[in-house]
Design a protein around this nucleic acid. Structure first.
Length: 597
RNA sequence: GCGGGUGUAGCUCAAUGGUAGAGCGGUAGCCUUCCAAGCUACUUACGAGGGUUCGAUUCCCUUCACCCGCUCCA
């Protein structure tokens, strides 16, 4: 990260983003707001193209995934079931001197003598009336309490303060003081990374709601409705894109970690391995790395997980991120969330990424592909009291044909998995066992809570990756053939904000302008076009290079028939190579569609 | 949250305790037959608030934002 060149590159990227209208600081005229960014004209197009590509790939091009668009504010119980309220609402205390933060319930109890102060004064006559206190272990020098108190009052703007009103008191097992330096801690306060709001006019605890910190939970909450209306059967997926909000401690690295951001998430529901085995006899295991091919009935969670990892990497390659710019990172067992069986992060090597010991960029997360077992649906089943089960006719038909030993083995495995889950969630052992036994009996009749594979990607991170990847400074000849540096955004045509720019060679020749407008109107229904007639043609080309427009079409006198054999042909200029070819206007639409889809 | 750095025009950068300047860009016009040409005009800034001062963009304080490191990251 201490790489000054990388930092330069990021600065040039940020500068270009603003100059060309990709990304602006939110609320800039008021000084900006930390962790929020806006997309300008080109950025908005880029983002839209990213989302369109994802949506088409994930839903339109598949039979087994359907879409959902849920609200940002949902019933607060959803965030209890998901675990977000608990993990986000820890009571935290902070040291008043070192600012170090502790979980309130994890501060070690201290015994000793408390030195109370009523305030302090300094030589310049400045005064603080803030009460403060320090706890010292028995027998320690009172001077060290005064030292800590001095630090405290210094932070309140006093120079060389003298603490006043000292008084002492013995105390046993207090958790109000920092075990490391004895300083008083703040009162416990909730430290919540979810944005909170109130539904309705009354700001009471009953009305608290949260802006969703991820889009995924709505998919689980609507699982039954989608299942019943979509005519889908497990395995199938539900896709959703949308805004999510996290009150990040430290927004960093331009838009990479923002407080408001957009996600593209798929929850792909699969049969538990026990059901797969009952139906297919065996559960297929990955033969090795790489794409496992078309989905098969005997796939368990491992195959499906690998499938989605590889599908997602293909997606990134398809919109122009080379395989070499990506890193496939398998989370280590100790990094996994407790309910996750495996998670693969797909990383992009950003300029600001840290480097490993070999000096290689390690990459930052664009997407996580998690195998989450049946945790999420089970949680919502427990919290809502509504069944989140799927009736699997294949399983029901297959089960009675199994020999009893196999039935017993599968039942036992399913029972173990279910009871493990239930005990982890804090159910009493007897109750957990009873419930798990019911679940295992239901399995034999064809009922189960589906497991899920979750590919979850960040739109803004991907936009930033595409911008970083596209940014290129190369050498191009000017009018006189002298080489000068050119900034060009080499976006893949699929996601480029503008697909083609249309230029009349000269602005002051009405017949050229008229023809150019005709061509613009011809292309407009098919793709995003940009018409530009101002200034020299070279300048207009270069402007489009910085916007990342992959093609330019120039209308000249030959188009109008100055050389009769070239009537109704135009110059097609390609951004990366700067090569020009002569093409017929009639062929433009199909040629450009082919190159930009 | 802590520590360090930086805030002057759309961008890159000057200068100054006394009316803020350039290059590039943008807009309009003239000109211009394929890679940031030329000429003319126009456009726009001291991040915000407070203090010191006759006067502050400049000095001081506070604050906000951005960058870097630490911390955090379901």
């Amino acid at each position: 990260m201490a790489d000054p060149k990388a930092n330069d590159l990021m600065e040039r990227l940020v500068s270009l983003c603003k100059r060309r209208g990709f990304i602006f600081q939110s609320s800039e005229i008021y000084g900006g707001i930390n962790g929020f960014w806006d997309y300008g004209p080109l950025g908005a197009e880029l983002k839209r193209n990213i989302k369109d590509a994802w949506w088409r790939t994930m839903t339109h091009f598949r039979d087994d995934v359907v879409g959902l668009e849920a609200t940002i504010i949902m019933h607060p119980q959803i965030w209890r079931a998901s675990g977000h309220v608990d993990t986000f609402c820890d009571l935290m205390v902070e040291c008043l001197v070192s600012k170090k933060r502790f979980r309130a319930d994890q501060v070690d109890a201290q015994s000793g003598v408390i030195y109370f102060y009523t305030g302090a004064k300094d030589a310049a006559g400045k005064q603080s009336n803030d009460a403060y206190s320090v706890l010292l272990a028995p027998g320690k020098n009172p001077e060290s309490a005064r030292k800590v108190a001095k630090q405290f009052y210094q932070q309140r703007g006093l120079t060389e303060p003298t603490p006043e009103g000292e008084r002492t008191e013995k105390v046993e097992n207090s958790i109000r003081y920092n075990p490391e330096n004895g300083s008083l801690l703040t009162d416990p306060r909730p430290f919540n990374l979810m944005f909170k709001t109130y539904v309705g006019p009354v700001e009471s605890e009953d009305n608290v709601a949260y802006l969703r910190p991820e889009t995924a939970q709505a998919i689980f909450a609507q699982f039954k409705n989608v299942l019943e209306t979509s005519r889908q059967k497990v395995p199938f997926g539900i896709a959703q894109m949308g805004k999510a909000f996290r009150n990040e401690v430290t927004p960093r690295n331009f838009t990479f970690r923002s407080r408001e951001f957009e996600q593209m998430e798929l929850e792909f529901f699969i049969k538990p391995d026990e059901a797969v085995e009952a139906i297919s006899g065996t559960v297929a295991k990955p033969a090795g790395p790489g794409h496992p091919g078309e989905p098969q009935p005997n796939w368990g969670w491992q195959m499906w997980h690998q499938y989605w990892v590889e599908e997602r990497i293909r997606f990134y390659e398809n919109i122009g991120l080379p395989r070499t710019s990506l890193v496939e990172y398998w989370q280590k067992p100790e990094e996994l969330a407790h309910y996750a069986r495996a998670t693969v992060d797909i990383l992009y090597k950003f300029p600001f990424s840290k480097r490993d010991e070999k000096g290689e960029l390690m990459g930052e997360e664009l997407e996580g592909v998690a195998a989450r077992s049946d945790f999420d649906l089970s949680q919502h089943q427990r919290f809502s009291g509504k069944p989140m089960i799927f009736f699997d006719e294949e399983l029901k038909a297959a089960w009675p044909k199994l020999d009893p030993a196999k039935q017993a083995e599968l039942s036992k495995r399913y029972f173990d998995a279910r009871s493990k889950y239930l005990i982890k969630t804090g159910e009493a052992p007897e109750k957990a066992e009873k419930q798990a036994r019911e679940d295992a009996e239901a399995l034999a009749k064809g009922y189960y809570v589906p497991h899920v594979i979750e590919p979850s990607a960040g739109v803004d991170r991907l936009a930033l990756a595409l911008i970083a990847n596209a940014y290129c400074e190369d050498q191009a000849p000017d009018e006189k053939g002298k080489m000068e540096s050119r900034i060009v955004m080499r976006f893949h045509p699929r996601i480029a904000p503008v697909k083609v720019a249309i230029f009349p060679l000269l602005k002051n020749k009405p017949e050229l302008v008229k023809k150019a407008i005709e061509v613009r109107d011809l292309l407009r229904p098919h793709m995003n076009v940009f018409y530009d007639e101002a200034g020299a043609i070279g300048r207009r080309y270069r402007r489009q290079d910085e916007a990342g427009t992959p093609f330019g079409v120039t209308i000249d006198f030959d188009t109008l028939g100055e050389k009769p054999e070239m009537l109704n042909t135009v110059t097609l200029r390609e951004r990366d190579s700067m090569q020009q070819t002569r093409v017929k206007i009639d062929e433009l639409v199909s040629l450009l569609l082919q190159k930009t889809r």
